[in-house]
Amino acid sequence: MRPVLSIEKVRKSFGQNTVLGEVSLQVPEHTATVLIGASGSGKSTLLRCINLLEQIDDGAIYLDEKEITSPLVNVDEARMRMGIVFQSFNLFPHMRVIDNITLAPIKVHKVKKEQARAEAKILLEKFGLLDKAEEFPDRLSGGQQQRVAIIRSIATHPRALLLDEITSALDPVLVNEVLAAITELKQEGMTMVIATHEMNFAHQVANEVCFLHNGFIAERGPAAQVLQDPQDIRTKEFLRKVSLN
């Protein structure tokens, strides 16, 4: 299967600090790649580079076999075909839930307002949030806000969805409702790159798991193999520490 996302020898440093050193990764269609690793290992930076929120220092990123890191590519058009969900939700506080969701479809994808609202309501219903459509984000729980953020990013029918530690700011009860939403998207065939600290979730949803260590992929492979029978000593060490928590 041809990859939706292809990352080739991507480098990124902030000043003297090398955050990504030659990271290569292919994400085939309808699969989920989960990035694990300690804080500062480069997971978030990789996602931000893919979404072109950070400019890479070397290498290339391809979306549907087209290089999006070329300076000739319209950044906005490339982003239109990707969705990203952040750790801190980043909903627009001055807009109602439904307007948060329909903003990009209406303004960027030029969908008619009625149609965008109808589609948004279908998604809200699916994720059990239809009664919150006319609320402002600050009236919602963290888990509800994060689900709205997920809906907002898939409302534009992205080719790939990037999830950046989306449950890190939530308490354990709320984590599950958000992860259930992602599992559902996975079953529908959404192509995803997920940075997470939830190992059970990684196991459940990942086709492939990549363990990042100091900006390099130390180990990658099928979820069951990497998480249950890690080969690299650093992966073993990391998983041991995580399971102690």
Partner: peptide, 25 residues
């Protein structure tokens, strides 16, 4: 800045992000 990042990640242009997300707030 996360508000601008969120708006831009949805594909809004600089001007659209300013008009619909940053300026109203």
């Amino acid at each position: 800045p996360s508000q601008r990042a969120a708006a831009r990640s949805l594909g809004l242009t600089q001007a659209q992000a300013m008009r619909y997300v940053i300026l109203p707030q």
